[in-house]
Amino acid sequence: MHTALPDTIYAIQHLAFEDLGSLEDTFYQMGYRVRYFEAGIDDLSKALEYKGLTIILGGPIGVYETEDYPFLQQEIDLLKVRLENNLPTLGICLGAQLIAHALGAKVYAGHAKEIGWSPLDIKATPNNPLAVLADHAVLHWHGDTFELPSQATLLASSAIYPNQAFSVGNNILALQFHIEAEAHTMEKWLIGHTCELRKADIHIPSLRRDNQQYAVALEMVASRVIQNFIGQLKYQ
Rank of each mutant, 00 (worst) to 15 (best):
H2Q: 12
L5F: 05
P6Q: 06
H14F: 11
L15F: 11
L15I: 07
A16G: 04
A16Q: 14
A16R: 13
F17C: 14
L20C: 05
L20G: 04
D25N: 13
G31I: 15
Y32H: 14
Y36A: 04
A39P: 07
G40V: 00
I41R: 15
D42T: 06
D43T: 03
A47S: 12
L48H: 01
E49K: 14
Y50T: 06
T54L: 08
G58S: 00
G59D: 00
V63I: 12
V63E: 09
Y64R: 02
T66I: 12
E67N: 14
D68N: 15
P70Y: 05
F71E: 08
Q74N: 15
I76S: 01
R82T: 09
L83W: 00
E84S: 14
E84L: 15
L87T: 03
G91Q: 08
L94A: 06
Q97F: 05
Q97K: 06
A100R: 11
H101I: 05
A102V: 10
L103T: 08
G104H: 12
A109C: 07
G110V: 02
G116Q: 04
W117T: 02
P119R: 07
I122V: 09
N128T: 10
N128L: 02
N128Y: 04
N128F: 07
A131M: 06
V132A: 10
L133F: 09
L133E: 10
A134K: 15
L139H: 03
S150V: 13
A152D: 12
A152I: 12
S158P: 02
A159H: 04
N171G: 07
N171M: 03
I172P: 09
I172R: 06
L175F: 04
F177S: 01
I179A: 11
I179V: 13
A183G: 01
A183T: 09
A183D: 10
G192S: 05
E196M: 04
I202C: 00
P205G: 08
P205V: 03
S206T: 14
L207E: 09
R209K: 13
A217D: 06
L218H: 06
E219G: 09
E219C: 11
R224C: 08
R224W: 10
V225M: 05
N228K: 10
Q232A: 09
L233P: 07
K234S: 14
